[in-house]
């Protein structure tokens, strides 16, 4: 695939003796929404984090937008500016207001004027439904509101792709919906997304492709309708049996 935005080629990673990524090959086209599922410890979070080099890999190559990931320094910072990241534990800057969280990247990294950054920041907060919280600090918001703010913060950089590392796993059940709604909106809007999640409903209706991982390997991948109707491998059938039966 030549039009791939993100390509992983024979990627391996070890945590000490633990082989967390085994010869992983994955290609994500611009505008594609890929949902990564699998049992815990399968390496899906590591995969997600390695794409903007929050985790380093031991062998193989990762290419973003036609260029291999830079090692360190300014080139890596530029790449990260183009890749939005949403964390399980939100990681909003605790000492800054919601709006200041959203404008920090654009003003310091993109060198936008404060006025421009604030205007676009408010527009994004409006879009994720928390414009009225702009002046508050993260600790004053609910988990769902914080995660929506974190999505707005990532979007403020006008990224070419977004990575979601279990974005709803730390949320109370009643707040999962509001975050998934924002993510579904993004997916429909044509954003390139890699989403690590346990939300099978989201995978079903928002994904272009489901990637199933186990033991550091990609076991199978298919469009969601196909994957959920007829998983080809025993591992996937077993996993789906466990998560869908209740």
């Amino acid at each position: 695939m030549t039009d791939a935005l993100i390509t992983l080629d024979a990627v391996n990673k070890w945590f000490g003796k633990l082989h967390v990524l085994r010869d992983v090959n994955l290609s994500v086209a611009a505008g594609e929404v890929v949902v990564v599922i699998g049992p815990s410890g399968s390496g899906k979070s590591t995969l997600c984090r390695s794409i903007n080099r929050l985790e380093t890999i031991d062998s193989g190559t990762i290419t973003f937008d036609g260029r291999p990931l830079p090692a360190e320094g300014r080139a890596l910072a530029r790449l990260r500016a183009d890749v939005g990241m949403v964390f399980q534990s939100f990681n909003l800057f605790a000492h800054k207001t919601i709006l200041d969280n959203v404008t920090l990247g654009p003003t310091k990294v993109r060198r936008q004027s404060t006025a421009d950054a604030r205007a676009y920041g408010m527009e994004l907060l409006e879009r994720v439904g928390i414009a009225d919280q702009a002046g508050k600090h993260p600790a004053q918001l609910s988990g769902g509101q914080q995660q929506r703010a974190a999505i707005a913060r990532a979007l403020a950089m006008r990224p070419k792709a977004m990575l979601f590392d279990e974005p709803t796993s730390a949320l109370d059940p009643e707040m999962v919906g509001e975050v998934l709604e924002v993510m579904t909106g993004l997916a429909k809007g044509g954003m390139t997304m890699i989403v690590v999640t346990h939300e099978m409903g989201f995978a079903r209706h928002a994904a272009d492709r489901v990637v199933f991982m186990a033991d550091g390997q990609i076991v199978e991948q298919a469009p969601p309708a196909e994957f959920f109707a007829q998983p080809r491998t025993e591992r996937a059938r077993d996993f789906l049996g466990k998560v869908l039966s209740h």
Partner: peptide
């Protein structure tokens, strides 16, 4: 650790990360 990771993932440099995110806290 998540504070510094979030700052890095926005593309902030080491010094910007210290100055705007880590040191104030």
């Amino acid at each position: 650790l998540g504070q510094a990771e979030a700052a890095r993932s926005l593309g902030l440099s080491f010094t910007q990360n210290l100055r705007h995110v880590v040191l104030p806290q």
